[in-house]
């Protein structure tokens, strides 16, 4: 065993990056579920975002344009889900699963000519002297802008849900769409906007994998992050900060177990490999011992006639 082989600074910087796709995808789904819609298509929207972002970044040479395209791509794909569930009142679970399958297929098709291409590199944000602070500099101030956007977005969603009128309306729609409708709120419109926000976030998360974390395009490269994001929303009790904590726990322990394996720590590897799932679930379950429950209208379709 040689723990000195693990560089704590690189480790922390590494897990912040590893957790970011999860933060985006889960945060988007959190807003969607707060509006009372269950979209199981996160994986499909992520992978679509991954290829849209990758393709546009390669064609334009600008990673930022890529991320913008990823958000748009994810949002456009989510509109399909919105149409199915909000207009035609199709079953949300089935529509979400279909969206995942569709997204995986569509992205494989779009990505055929991008296999093996190297994307343009995303520059780090220039923090000037802050970057030179020992330890804190490399850990906190040496990342790309999208990583900071993720954290900012968590804060923004928290403020929006907790302190703003828009958040109150969103939550009202999610708790009781009939009551919200009776008050004159456009339930379908609000939910569609939430779904699009979820799609855009998932798309950003996907593009973060294909443009920064790996960086390359490979078919099916999200490999289940979307499903982990869905689980994370539930375990975080639909609370943004817990979601952030959960994502960092998950990313951190995943990264830690790889580091420990590399350093030859004598813990059986299979326990290390399952530890991210176990510990994240455990911590979030303990935290959610209070009375936070799912939005009451979650997964129920709404029609103004009912």
């Amino acid at each position: 065993m040689d723990l000195s082989a693990i560089n704590p600074i690189l480790f922390v910087a590494g897990f912040l990056v590893a957790a970011t796709p999860l933060i985006f995808a889960a945060l988007g789904e959190l807003v969607v579920e707060k509006s009372g819609v269950l979209n199981l298509g996160v994986e499909g929207m992520m992978i679509s975002g991954a290829i849209c972002g990758f393709a546009v970044a390669v064609e334009t040479g600008s990673p930022l344009a890529g991320f913008a395209a990823a958000a748009i791509g994810g949002a456009v794909l989510s509109l399909l889900f919105a149409f199915l569930t909000q207009i035609t009142l199709a079953n949300q679970v089935a529509s979400g699963l279909a969206l995942t399958l569709f997204g995986l297929g569509l992205s494989a098709l779009l990505g055929q000519s991008y296999v093996g291409v190297k994307p343009p590199r995303m520059a780090e944000v220039n923090f000037g002297p802050l970057h030179d602070i020992p330890v804190l500099g490399p850990v906190l101030f040496s990342h790309d802008i999208i990583l900071y956007l993720g954290i900012t977005l968590v804060a923004a969603v928290w403020v929006m849900l907790k302190y703003t009128r828009a958040g109150l309306i969103l939550r009202a729609v999610g708790e009781s769409h009939d009551a919200a409708h009776a008050l004159g709120y456009k339930v379908v419109r609000i939910r569609t906007l939430a779904i699009m926000f979820g799609g855009a976030c998932a798309g950003l998360g996907g593009a973060y994998i294909s443009l920064i974390r790996v960086p390359q395009w490979t078919e099916g490269m999200t490999a289940g992050v979307g499903w982990i994001a869905l689980a994370l929303v539930v375990f975080a009790s639909w609370k943004p900060w817990r979601l952030l904590l959960g994502a960092y726990l998950f990313g951190g322990i995943t990264q830690l177990q790889l580091n420990l394996q590399g350093a030859g720590v004598a813990i059986p590897v299979e326990y290390l490999a399952m530890s991210p799932y176990l510990i994240t679930i455990l911590v979030l379950v303990v935290l959610s011992a209070d009375k936070s429950a799912a939005p009451a209208s979650l997964g129920r379709n709404f029609h103004a006639s009912s």
């Binding site: 099916g220 490999a223 992050v225």
Partner: peptide, 12 residues
């Protein structure tokens, strides 16, 4: 097959 995880392992 999990590109993100494989990349993480390589980086570590």
């Amino acid at each position: 097959f999990d590109p993100a995880k494989e990349a993480d392992a390589a980086k570590v």
